[in-house]
Amino acid sequence: MPRDPKQLSPPTMATLKEGVWKENPVFIMLLGLCPALAVSNTALNALAMGLASTFVLLGSTTLISLLRHLIPKQVRIASYIIIIATFVTIVDYTIHALSLELYNALGAFIQLIVVNCMILGRAEAYASKNRILTTFVNSIGMGAGFTLALFSIGAVREILGFGTFFGIPLFGSNFQAWAVFILPPGGFFVLSLWLVLFAALRRRADQRKEVGHAS
């Protein structure tokens, strides 16, 4: 991981952090919500989905950035989608070979990474305009942000819905699991609560800045 600040110039470090916090794809930009809600019923599924999406994002944006002068403007979206679909097919077959259990848990949502708007959005807005290295670093940040978001939704849903974390029981036998959190409505509720939390935090930071300016 290129986290060591000595190896990178300052702007590249900022590009890395951008995706994790300021432009977090799920919590701030509301992209890629379908997988974020559909496979986040346990922390493990969420983490696997996040890593798979990150791999597709990294591979496709790097390749697109490499080919950005060769792809004609008119057919760029179609070319991007075909590049993304290729990487998704790789991921699909890899997960199928490595862990059948995980493959069945994620189901069609691995193949549906193709239509994750976060990846196409990054390809169009960033990879087609930037050099390979910056694109690569930015994609790592975006992927990490996406994985983090999925993980935080999945962890909350698993802890409340099953009373476990990565399959390890957290509470005593008296704990009554809130089944609604592993069912579809729970996904909506947990995501909206995270959004409220982030909005409240941002408001507080803004207010503090205003007070600082005034005094």
């Binding site: 609604v180 509720f189 909206s192």
Partner: peptide, 22 residues
């Protein structure tokens, strides 16, 4: 309430709808 505007409140509504559809 202020922090719940737009996306957050829409998602909560969607959650309630989804609860109804169950």
């Amino acid at each position: 309430p202020d922090p719940c505007t737009s996306a957050a409140i829409s998602l909560m509504l969607a959650g309630l709808l989804s609860l109804a559809f169950m």
